[in-house]
Amino acid sequence: MTEYKLVVVGAGGVGKSALTIQLIQNHFVDEYDPTIEDSYRKQVVIDGETCLLDILDTAGQEEYSAMRDQYMRTGEGFLCVFAINNTKSFEDIHHYREQIKRVKDSEDVPMVLVGNKCDLPSRTVDTKQAQDLARSYGIPFIETSAKTRQGVDDAFYTLVREIRKHKEKMSKDGKKKKKKSKTKCVIM
């Protein structure tokens, strides 16, 4: 069974824990209790493949930012979460993405942009803004509501699919490099 290491990042209060708990335990946590770091595991079937999701729910508070490099190193894919009623959390996505790329030393890291709290009427981040940002990053965008469960499975499952595509691409690139290195030079 394939294991996928997913990391949920975003500013404090955007609903990272609520999304994760909704996926794992099928219930909505409405009281806000700032996370330092929590880890969850769940076995699911995605596109006919049974897999184990190892999900790291991270601290959004700035005082825990020193811990970010460590979990970013171990993560295979990242859910970059903002709240649709919090423009600052949307603007912060850029910083999370840049930090992930720096730590992973790669421009090509599996990510999904997630606009959470889409059940709320007080939207300050337009869907088109988020779609445009995701398009500019070359990553999928999904709106979710941890409260109603809308888009929750889709967000995590899409990230797994992005990781699969990335692994497939990397193995193809690896095979191309191996083929090239088999060419021999004969000096007579």
Rank of each mutant, 00 (worst) to 15 (best):
K101G: 10
L120F: 05
H95Q: 11
E162T: 12
V29L: 05
T20I: 03
R41E: 02
I142N: 07
E98Y: 02
E31C: 13
V9K: 01
L133A: 09
V7K: 14
E63R: 08
K175G: 13
E62S: 05
K42Q: 10
D47P: 06
I142L: 06
Y4L: 12
V7P: 02
D119Y: 05
R102T: 08
K176A: 15
L19S: 14
N26W: 10
D33A: 01
Y32K: 00
V44W: 11
R123F: 07
I36H: 00
Q25W: 04
L52F: 11
I55M: 06
S145W: 04
S65L: 09
K101L: 15
N86I: 02
P110M: 03
E63M: 03
L133N: 15
Y4T: 08
K117Y: 14
T158S: 09
R73Q: 11
T127I: 09
H27C: 10
R123S: 11
Q22R: 09
R97K: 15
H166F: 06
I142H: 14
I142T: 09
G10E: 02
H95G: 12
R164W: 05
K169E: 08
E3F: 06
T124K: 10
H27Y: 13
L133Y: 12
L79D: 01
Q131V: 12
L113C: 07
I46Q: 15
K117D: 12
V114L: 08
D173G: 11
I21D: 02
D54M: 11
T50I: 13
Y71R: 13
I21T: 15
K101P: 02
V8I: 09
V103A: 09
L56K: 02
I36N: 00
V109L: 05
I100A: 09
K167Y: 06
Q99R: 06
L113W: 15
R164E: 08
D38Q: 00
K167T: 11
L53R: 02
K42H: 04
F78W: 04
V114D: 02
Q43M: 14
I46G: 11
S145T: 15
V125L: 07
I21W: 01
V14H: 14
A83Y: 02
Q61K: 13
Y40S: 00
R102G: 07
G75A: 12
I24G: 02
V9A: 06
M72Y: 07
D154G: 06
V44R: 10
Y4D: 04
A83V: 03
R161S: 15
T2V: 10
V44M: 15
K175C: 15
D154Q: 07
K104E: 05
R73P: 07
D38P: 01
D54P: 14
D54W: 13
F141N: 10
D47C: 11
A59P: 01
I55T: 14
I100G: 02
K178G: 10
L159D: 01
P121C: 12
K167A: 07
R102L: 11
C118M: 12
L113D: 01
S136M: 10
G174A: 03
A134E: 15
G138R: 15
T20D: 02
M67R: 06
V103H: 04
E98Q: 12
G115Q: 08
T20V: 08
K178V: 11
E3V: 10
D154Y: 05
A66C: 13
V152E: 09
D153I: 07
I46L: 11
E98W: 01
T50K: 11
L159C: 05
C51I: 12
E107V: 06
V152L: 13
I55G: 01
D154E: 10
A59D: 01
D54I: 03
Y96V: 14
A83M: 13
T144F: 04
D119V: 04
V152I: 11
H166K: 10
E3L: 10
C118L: 11
K175Y: 10
D132L: 05
F156T: 09
A66R: 07
V81Y: 01
E107H: 04
T50Q: 15
D173N: 11
V114H: 02
L6P: 03
S181V: 14
M67P: 04
R73S: 09
Q43C: 05
F78C: 02
I21K: 03
H27F: 12
G75R: 04
G13N: 11
R41M: 03
D54Y: 08
V152C: 05
P110A: 05
T50E: 12
I36E: 00
V14G: 12
Q25N: 15
K175R: 03
K16T: 02
Y157P: 08
K178D: 10
V29Y: 11
K117H: 13
V81A: 06
Q150I: 14
G174D: 09
G77A: 13
V7M: 05
E31F: 15
T50M: 13
Q129E: 04
D38V: 01
Y71E: 15
Y64P: 01
Y32N: 02
V125G: 10
Y40L: 00
E168D: 04
T74Q: 05
R123Y: 09
R68K: 05
V9Y: 04
A18Y: 00
A83T: 15
K5M: 09
K104F: 15
D173L: 15
A155D: 02
V44A: 12
A155S: 11
S122F: 09
F156Y: 12
R41S: 03
M188I: 05
K88Y: 03
R135G: 12
G15N: 01
N26D: 12
D57T: 00
Q131Y: 05
A134G: 08
G10R: 01
T20H: 00
L52P: 07
G15W: 02
M170I: 03
D105R: 06
G75F: 09
M72V: 03
A11S: 10
E31N: 13
L23E: 15
R123K: 11
D126Q: 09
V81K: 02
I139Q: 07
A83H: 10
L133K: 10
E162K: 11
K172D: 13
K165C: 14
E49F: 05
V44Y: 15
L52Q: 14
G12P: 07
E162N: 12
D126W: 07
F28R: 01
S39E: 04
Q61T: 10
D108S: 11
K165L: 13
K167I: 05
R73V: 10
K165M: 04
K167E: 06
Y137M: 14
Q61Y: 04
Y64F: 08
K16D: 00
T58F: 00
K16F: 01
T127M: 07
S136W: 10
M188C: 04
A155N: 02
H27A: 10
T20E: 00
I46P: 11
Y96R: 15
G115I: 13
R135F: 04
T74V: 11
E62L: 04
T74K: 13
K182G: 05
F156S: 03
Y96W: 15
K167Q: 06
K117F: 14
E49K: 11
G13S: 12
C118G: 10
M67W: 13
R102D: 06
P121S: 10
V45L: 11
D54F: 11
I84D: 14
V112M: 11
R68V: 03
V45P: 13
V114A: 04
G12H: 12
E168R: 08
A66I: 05
Y40T: 00
K182C: 03
K5N: 08
E76D: 15
I55N: 03
D47S: 10
D126N: 08
D69H: 14
C51F: 07
V14Y: 15
T35S: 01
K128A: 05
Q129I: 04
F28V: 02
V114T: 07
I55E: 00
Y32W: 11
Y40H: 00
R123P: 08
H166V: 09
I36K: 00
L56E: 01
C80E: 02
N86F: 02
Y40W: 15
K104Q: 14
M72P: 15
G10T: 01
Q70L: 05
E162H: 07
Y137D: 15
K101T: 15
T50F: 08
T127K: 05
K104A: 14
K176L: 06
T35N: 00
S17G: 00
H95A: 15
L52S: 13
V14R: 14
C80Y: 06
Q22F: 05
Y40G: 00
S106C: 11
S145L: 03
K117C: 09
V112R: 01
V8R: 02
V125A: 10
S39N: 07
G12N: 11
F82E: 08
R164F: 07
L6V: 09
V152G: 09
C118T: 10
S17D: 00
Q129P: 13
G151A: 08
I24K: 01
D154C: 05
